[in-house]
């Protein structure tokens, strides 16, 4: 765009408004919801946004079958029920689901491995959209590949629907370690680093220079308790997605409020102890080790 255009018409869908939207979510909790009623509970508990989907990951996991974008009626019902931002999931590579979600007015699209991939070679060309995208990543190379395709926000993948936080921990630690390594490399070694990371050189150089991803990084996958959320924040997450962990627990409203508070006071054990009291049953959960490899979601996407 030229300066002249900027002077006359508002510019929508720019990098700044897409990445900026994620900046505004920082320090917050984004909650999976499957009904307008759950969306209201999330909003009342202090969620910064909700993720509208048909089944939470725990149910997708137990019921099996192909998991797809939610029915537009459901997405619209949730958009009408709350005034905080609404996100929704499209299958990896399914650019038409993304077009539909954009036309419904969702505020962010999650190109998500929790749904069954629609394309095993290509992710969505996210630059073609006005709506911003968040994508999952298990390591730095994957995060930078998603950013090069236009993702405006990154999240760890974790192992969604398990209530087992160990994979999210691995992804957050890997990202942190790989970024730290880049910042320690001499400039003339970044070319090989980019090759090894399978990521574009300019992005690799930018991360080496700034010591952080150029977009906001949240954590996701298996977060079930206030302590889980706080641990991810201490490991460098800038905010938290909670999937099945809230509405598969005994007392969703209380647990949601507690996770919101824990995300703000992630570094204060006395607050964390206080908010962790009397929350009732956490989601039962499954150990990631017990999930047969073909059913591990974090391995979808590349």
């Amino acid at each position: 765009m030229s300066d002249n255009d900027t002077a006359t018409t508002p510019q929508v869908g720019t990098d700044l408004v897409k990445r900026g939207m994620a900046e505004m979510l920082k320090g917050g909790v984004i909650m999976d919801v499957v009904t307008p009623e759950q969306a209201k509970i999330a909003e009342d508990a202090g969620a910064v946004a909700v993720m509208a989907l048909e089944r939470v990951p725990a149910d997708i996991r137990s019921q099996g079958g192909v998991a797809r974008m939610s029915d537009p009626d459901l997405v619209s019902g949730i958009i009408d029920a709350v005034s905080i931002p609404v996100m929704a999931k499209a299958r990896i590579g399914h650019f038409v689901e993304a077009q539909i979600l954009q036309s419904l007015g969702v505020d962010y699209i999650d190109e998500s491995e929790v749904l069954t991939p629609a394309d095993y070679a290509h992710h969505i060309d996210k630059w073609q959209f006005t709506v911003p995208f968040v994508c999952g990543a298990t390591n730095l190379g994957e995060a930078l590949r998603r950013i090069s395709e236009g993702a405006a926000m990154i999240r760890s993948k974790g192992e969604a629907g398990t209530g087992d936080v160990s994979n999210a921990t691995t992804h957050m630690r890997t990202l942190r370690t790989e970024i730290a390594r880049l910042t320690s490399l001499p400039k003339d070694e970044l070319y090989v680093a980019a090759k090894e990371l399978q990521a574009p050189l300019p992005l690799v150089q930018e991360v080496a220079e700034t010591g952080k991803l150029p977009v906001v990084t949240f954590t996701a996958g298996g977060i079930a308790t206030p302590a889980d959320a706080a641990m991810m924040m201490q490991l460098g997450a800038e905010g938290v997605f909670v999937g099945s962990g809230i509405f598969k627990s005994g007392d969703p409203a209380s647990r949601a409020k507690a996770i919101v508070k824990a995300t703000t006071f992630y570094d204060d054990p006395s607050v964390l102890a206080e908010v962790s009291r009397g929350l009732g049953e956490a989601m039962v959960g499954i150990n990631v080790d017990e999930v047969p490899e073909p059913h591990r979601l974090a391995e979808r996407g590349w």
Binding site: T8, Q11, V12, L16, V17, M21, S83, V106, D107, V131
Partner: peptide, 15 residues
């Protein structure tokens, strides 16, 4: 007025 300019797809840079 909260969210007066609309949803995220309406978010913009303006002179």
């Amino acid at each position: 007025r909260r969210n007066a300019f609309g949803r995220q797809v309406d978010s913009s840079e303006v002179a």
